[in-house]
Amino acid sequence: MRFLLDAEQRAFADSLDAMLTAADTPSVVRDWSRGDHDGGRALWSRIAKAGVFALAVPEAYEGMGPHPVELAVGFVELGRHAVPGPLVETVAAAALLAELADPLPAGRLLPSLASGEASATLALDGAYALDGDAATTRLALAADGLRLAPGHGPVRASLDPARRLTPLTPGGELLATAPPVAHALVWARLATAAQALGVGLALLDRTVAYVGQRTQFGVPVGSFQAVKHRLADAKIALEFARPLLFGAALTMAPADVAAAKVTACEAAYATARTALQLHGAIGYTAEYDLSLWLAKARALRTAWGTPAQCRAEVLSGGARRW
């Protein structure tokens, strides 16, 4: 038993963090929100080169996976830097394609997802797919099975401007009649949980820095107990979400992943509320970069399973769970 990230896993996180810090993600996010995907695609390619997507793709399809723990490590960093794009969806699509009874679609589509030449989005409930205007592979679960959607409809705005919601065009090639949707959902929830944890950690860091330098009544506002205690609660929530995330990545049991998903997303969202309140009016502006993380924390909360759905999943198993 050693329930800690090892040196290699920590180094992977550090190298991604350094790369993303240098990439000026806020300006990439703002371009992406306007439908200008150039900067985002370049960043996507670097993230793929670092191996993030390959972690979800089996070696048989030119990936390195499946490695859910390392994937979670990577997605925490993607969340921390508010990286835009169908990140979770690409992972979920890879997990889905890798497990189809017929290996042909996987052989055709997975190598380019692993390398970053392609990106994927996925609609499992028939409504909207994330960033269907940017993704090169659009998968839709139709009544008769999994289809490769031929296109997408008009973009609908999200509460997170960097998340562009698109209906997928009906029809297209039928890839499988009984795709393992539950398996894809587990991967989607794990990646979302990790991304949300990263979003929450970034919100906490930025807010701690802000209240340390913002002065009112002649002292930093971070010296006030009312401010400190809100940040302490955010820290507690995030630090208890973290072990659930990595515990879930080790087991990949649906109940464990659902527990991690609801906990990480609620921790990130609570941290977002605290971050907004403690920044005051400046935090309530779109031009201030904090908004990029605030918006994402709200959106991830209901993506790939609402809090209630995740809690129901936790209780759906047998007698003793852990």
Binding site: M1, F3, L4, E239, F240, A241, P243, L244, F246, G247, D256, A259, V262, T263, R311, V314, L315, R321, W322
Partner: peptide
């Protein structure tokens, strides 16, 4: 249930 698991894993860490 989730809190007990979180506390267990936090403690294992």
């Amino acid at each position: 249930v989730i809190g007990a698991r979180a506390y267990q894993l936090f403690t294992y860490a």
